Amino acid sequence: MAEVEDLIEDVAIRLPEAGVIRARGQRRRTRARAVRGGAAGALVLAAAGAWGLLLPADGPEARQTVATTTANPFRVDGEVVMRPADELPEYAIWHWKESDGLPEGAGPRSDALPQVGLDGACPASFVPADEPGQQRYSVLYTGSDHALAQHRVIEYEATATARSQVTELRGEMTRCGLRSASPTAREKEEGSSVWSGTVADGRTLRVSVRRWESWVSVEEVLHGTPAG
Rank of each mutant, 00 (worst) to 15 (best):
A34M: 15
E168D: 10
D100G: 15
A129F: 09
A92P: 02
E3R: 05
I154T: 13
S138P: 01
E190H: 14
T184Y: 03
I21W: 10
E5P: 00
L45D: 01
A106T: 07
R163A: 15
W212E: 07
A40D: 06
V20P: 03
T184N: 05
T161P: 06
E79L: 05
Q134C: 02
V81I: 04
S99T: 10
E172Y: 09
V80L: 02
A40E: 10
R83L: 15
S193T: 13
Q26M: 10
R152S: 11
A112T: 14
G19E: 15
L169V: 00
S193Y: 13
P56A: 09
D10A: 07
A18G: 09
P84W: 06
G143S: 08
T167M: 05
A158N: 11
V11N: 00
H95R: 14
L55E: 08
A18M: 08
A71N: 02
Q64L: 07
S138M: 10
A227F: 12
D10K: 10
G120Q: 12
V166Y: 05
I154P: 01
A124K: 06
G197V: 07
A57H: 10
V127Y: 04
A32D: 13
E220F: 03
V127S: 03
T142N: 05
R27D: 07
I93R: 11
K188N: 06
